[in-house]
Amino acid sequence: MKVSLYLREGEGAFLVVGNLRAEVTECTVAVDMAQMGLGEDVRAWNALSERDLPLQDDRITVRLRPNSFVLARLERR
């Protein structure tokens, strides 16, 4: 798995979660929203499919196909 994060502090962030494995993998990414200035009310969604991503306790869990990725957008509501 590979995760990179791009932050516009106080506004939003962008996460790339890549599955470099050969099998479907579930990955939980813990993000410190407060440290990034996003506060507690944050929405997370898949930037390509625009599908909401489950965000609980500052954690996003995604299930990924082999050699696939999700482009996750985080934005304070």
Partner: peptide, 10 residues
């Protein structure tokens, strides 16, 4: 699998 982004950014 859990990852902390601050570690990854490093």
């Amino acid at each position: 699998m859990r990852m902390r982004t601050d570690a990854l950014l490093s």
